[in-house]
Each structure stands twice: as C-alpha cells, then as structure tokens.
Design a binder for these strands. Structure first.
Lengths: 205, 205, 205, 205
DNA sequence: AATGAATGAGTTTTCATTCAT
DNA sequence: CATGAATGAAAACTCATTCAT
C-alpha cells in the first residue's frame, strides 16, 4: 500500500526520511506563501526530492496541505494538553497557555505554515482550519469556568464573554506579529498583553 | 487612451457603469475567495460583462485587486476621518471608531474583499495591506495620546502598549467574526468588547 | 457562456469554424489511435489550433471524445432514418441499411473515430458506445418484425434470432475490414454478404 | 540472467509462482481494461506482488502484454489443434471448432484479456493481434476446402467467401457477447448460430 | 528474487492575457 | 467600448521505469 493512502504505510527507513523531509519543506514553503502561490516544485526543491516523490508520499497538493494542517493541530493540541495536565488553576493555565502557544508559533515552521495556510485553502480545508479557532475559544471558555469554580478567577462577566475577549486578543496579536515579523515578536507581545488578561480575569486585584 | 491609464478621462456613461459593475463584482468575488482562487471569469460573469472588459478598465488581475484594495482603504479612511472631525475626546473617538468600522465591515462587500484579500495577495500588494494595519495601530496610538492630553484617558500604561492591545483586540474580533459568519456578527461582537476597552483606558472607573 | 458548456454557445463565425476544425481533427486522430494513445496535442496540431482552444470549445479530453461519439451516433442515426422513411418493405430496408451504413463507415472519419473509440474509452462512455450496438440490434429486430408483417420476410425463425445473426454478421464484418484496411473494403464486403442475408430472411427462394 | 531473457533458465519454485501469479493477474486486469487504462500497479496489486517484480519477470509493460497475447494465441491454437487432430470431416470440424472456441473465450480470463487487448495495443503488437484474425479466417477457409473435398460441404459458393462469412459471424458474436456480459453468453449465442452456418455450408439440406 | 522508494519525462489542465472584429 | 475567441506558458498530475537494499 502506497504511503499516501495511509501515512503509516511507509515501510522503509529511507521512505520515512523522505516523507518527513517533504513535510518539513512544506512547512517552510507554506509559512511564506499561500496555498496557490506555493508550487509543488518549491516544496520538492526545498526537500531535495523529486516532484514525483510528493505524489508517492501524499498523493496530491491538497493532501500535503492537509498533512501540514494535521501536524499543526497535533502540535498545538500537544502543547495544550501538556499545560492542562499540570493540575494548575484555571487562571494560571490560561496565562501559561498563551505564552506557550506564542512560543510554539514563534519557533515551529510547520505550525506557522498551518496558520498562514488557513485562509488560502480550498473551501473544505479552510473550514477545518476555522473550526480549530472555534474549538480554541471553547477550550478557553472551559478554562475560565474552571477558574471560576476554583476561585482563581473573580470576574463577574460571563465565561463566554471572557473567552471571546481573550481569544480575540490572542488571535489579533498572532495576526499582527505574523504580519510584522513572521511571529518572531509574538512571545514578547503576549507577555505585554498578560497584565490586561489579568485585569480581565481578576478585576479587583 | 484607456481608462485604466487615464483615471479621469473622457469616460462615457456606459463605460462608467461597466467599470463600477466590475468593481462591485470583484468585491463580491474577492470577499469569498482568495486572490488566486478568484478567476477573472468569475468576476466578469458576476458583473455580466466579458473577460476582455476587465482589461479595458483595469489592465490586469493585479490591478483590479489593487483597485479593490484602494476602495477599501478609502472607505475605511473616510469613515475614520468622519469620526476624527467631530472634535470629541480621544477616548470617545476610539470607542466610536471601533463601532463604526465594525459596521462598515459588516455591510460593505468591497471592504470585506479588501480584508479577505490581504493575506492572499502577491508579495508587493500584501505588504501594502499589512502597512494599513500598522498605520491603523499608529492612528490608534495618536488617539490614545490625545485622550491622555485631554484627560479622557486615565490609564498610566504607555499609549503604545494601549494601542497595541486595542488593535489586537479589534483585529482578532474581525478575524473571528469573518470566519464565523462573514463579518455579520462583528458589530455585536464589538459592542460586547467595549466595556473591556473602557476598563483598559480608564482603569479606575 | 463558454462554448464547452453548451455546444450552441458559440457566438462568432470564427468560433464555429475552429470548433468544427477541432472536431474533424479529433475524428482523424481518434480513427487511428485509441483514446489514451491520442494526445490532445495531436488533435490541436491536426486542427492547426492551440491546445487551449480544445479547453475553450470542449472543456477536456473526455468531453471532446464524447462529442465525437455524439456526432458518430447522429450521423448513423440520420442515415438510418433516411432509409426508414422511404416506406419500403422490412426486407428491403434491412438490405439497403446494411449497404448504406457500410458506405458511411468507409468514408466518414468521424464515424470511424466513433467505431475505433468505443472500446478504449473510460468506463462510462464505453458503456454508452455499447448501448448503441444493442439499440442497433433492437432496431434490426423491429425491421424483421415489420418484414414478417408485410410478407417480405418468410423465415420462420424468431425475429430476435434473425436480428442477432444479422447484427453479428455486420459487426464482425466491420471489425474485420477495420483491421484490414480501415474500413475501405467494408462496402464490398457487405455486398458479398447480402446473398447470405437473403437466404436467412427468405430461405425458400 | 533474468527470467524474462532466459525463458527456460534455472527458475526457482518461488520465481515460477510469482511469474504465474503476475501473468494471471494481468489476464484479469487486461480483460477489464485497455492497455493504457491498466496500470502496472493494478497488476502487481492483483497479483499480491510488488511493481518491481513485473520488471524482473517480464521486462516492461509492453512485454507483459505480449506475454498475455502469446498465452492467448497458444491456448486458442491448442484448442484448434485438438479439434483438427480428430480426423473429422471439414464440416464437422468447423462446427465443433466454433463451439469449443466460444467455450474457451467464455471461461479463460487470459484468453479474454487477449481479445480485449487487441485494439488498444501499441501499433506493432496490435498488428500481431490483427494477423491472428486473418490467420483464423485462412484456417477456416482451409477447413471449408477440406469439407468440399470430403463431400461434407455442398455449397457452391467459393470457400473464400464462406470463410469470410463464418469468420464475420463468429467475430461479431464475440464482440456482442463481450460487450453484453464479458463473453459469458458466447457459447449459447454460438449454439444459436449453428443452424445458419449449416444452412450456409449445406444449402440443400 | 523481491520490495518499497524514487525519478522524470510526458500529458492534461488551467487561466491570465492578447487579439480580431 | 465591448465581446468572444484564441493563445501559450505554467502547473499539477500520472506512471512506466530504475534504483538501493
């Protein structure tokens, strides 16, 4: 069974390496260019492989973009999971989460590719990208609710509204720093935002 | 000499109408699709005109996208100017500006097209789009400084930081509502954010 | 509306000419080569047109093959209709029909293309080609039945069987002469077969 | 030296099995698809072998198609030889031959593959396929001549014409039943045709 | 012998742009 | 001014063939 039918179909060491090289090359290319601007030749050149190898490993352009999106979502989910598993208060988790995600975005080209890709994808995939933003806000809302329960969050606003504001703040910061310097400045920017997130969640203090 | 060279030439009635129809059709098409996804045929069909007419009126694809971007920036600038000319305090101006821009984005397809277009454009134009976000933040910063001078803003944070936060909040909200329902919900969303902007600018109150 | 959406969409004289040139070029090419062996470049070269023009007029390879098939079926149907409308006996009509179709196949490259194309087409289209053979046998059966009614056919075999035999004889002759000399010999071959068809339909005489 | 060069070399058991599996898989695949539609991957998958193995055993695509053609012609020749060696009259041999070949075609996928393959092959091979139809007609003519000599055939038509008619009838039947149900119905169809072949060869009776 | 991986030439398709009327 | 037609260069995709293990 050809690898592109099932990511785990790869049988030989060399195949695994090429597949990964292609994926990382895609990350670098898609983090600079839109789906349509990026040519398969750009990717295969960047990976020092042939154009045919993309077909062998991923099937077509759409599918390699999807693979990139999957990796991005996995890595972000993993980062999130790691924060959630530490047993901290809702409040602490939110603040740490913002910083950790910012750092991930600032350093991981595959994650950046996912971010950049979202709004240039063919319809179906773009919707998948949008969904991930919605789920992100939902996750934030759950953390706010947890924070209210554990007393670490004292705001009397609804968790829904607080999550909406925090998400907007985060997403906006991500956009602005993406435009400015390809997310390099995102962690610093996020640090600067934290006092306001605190003010939002614990207004009295 | 062709209209696209001679911006204010001897346009006849029919020509003006076609040009406008094409521009508005571009707005509708580009607000749904990226620069590359949108085909000139989509636009000419949407405008009930021929593909050739686009070349007569705009020169090429790049130029019609640029025209859309120009219209968007004009309309946003006009809206802004209108708010600035009312002689209100910096604080009031900022709040009103946020709401007015949200309403504009929610209703004007050409403005939406500009928003959607930004991150799928060829390099040079994309940079122009990015610049407009930077100028927006600068404008906000100036308004904050004005608010500090006129006493309507009492925060002790630097105007630069305040402007950064407000801009991120706005941009993030715009992204989220664009994804959710093509900006329909943006005005309502912005209203919900205002209390936080107040808290930001006048923390004691 | 682009011509390839609707064959009748062509609006200008030049367009009509190019479309026809492409169709006839397709006939010549497809009568020599299978669907896959024939390259679009062969067709556009043969028609002295650009490859893009095929896209403009027909949309894609599949559709130009379908257009060829349609023309073949039309021309054969027209020939058939002409014979049927003469008000002859069933017996006479069958004999004349065989000869007329043989002549058509021997002379019309587009009809030949249809014949040659049938068994190298993508699945769906191939089935359409097969259907036309089935309908042909049905038509023959109807003529036999008519001949029995009008007394011109005296065989006591079932019309179904007679039609099956005649059709096989015809189809086999068409195959053999197609292989031998691209259908040039088909009319002569058909003439040689007629006595046997007579013997079949009027055994006593 | 590789098997495909050394037809009778030191094949090991495993090699023989793989080669045969590939050949039979080719039969199944080529009986459904044209030369170009059939991909080597289809064949190796069908044989549960690797693509590479085809090259070891057959050299290339052209050669595996040729091997299929060879097997088809061998099997048909063998069937024919068996009938010829029974010392029957020309008349009896012809009738039995038609039935036996029909049965072979109805049951042997490799023979079916040869039939289907003929008119989609690259030029040179296709000609070989066509030749086999010509030789078939010649063989039939020889049998008619034999029948005339041994008195089992009483028609006064020339053996050439009789052979032409019988071959056309056979080939046509084969085409029609191939289209209808992949040759399943061919033996029954042939049985139905026999009375007419009799009428052809012995008109008085 | 066999396999999975890799290659690259060939083909179709796409579509911005140009052209003739 | 406008249109439909035509073009050709650029891409994606396909897949027979070769390669390394």
């Amino acid at each position: 069974m050809a690898p592109h039918v099932d990511g785990a179909g790869t049988k030989q060491q060399r195949g695994i390496e090429t597949r990964m090289a292609l994926l990382e090359a895609s990350g670098r290319v898609f983090s600079r260019l839109t789906y349509d601007q990026a040519k398969l030749k750009d990717i295969s050149d960047e990976a020092n492989a042939s154009q045919g190898s993309i077909y062998f490993h991923f099937g077509n352009k759409y599918d390699i973009a999807e693979a990139v999106l999957n990796v991005q979502q996995e890595r972000m989910a993993t980062t999130l999971e790691a924060e959630l598993s530490l047993g901290r208060t809702g409040y602490d988790t939110i603040l740490h989460m913002l910083v950790k995600l910012a750092t991930l975005m600032a350093t991981d080209p595959l994650v950046q590719a996912g971010l950049q890709l979202v709004d240039s994808l063919p319809e179906e995939l773009r919707d998948r990208g949008h969904d991930s933003y919605v789920r992100w806000q939902e996750r934030t809302q759950m953390l706010v609710e947890q924070g209210v329960r554990d007393g670490s969050i004292t705001s009397t606003e609804t968790p829904e509204l607080l999550a909406e504001i925090i998400t907007a703040l985060y997403v906006g910061g991500q956009m602005m720093s993406g435009m400015a310097d390809r997310w390099t400045s995102l962690p610093a920017r996020m640090e600067r935002s934290l006092p306001f997130v605190r003010m939002l969640l614990r207004p009295e203090s």
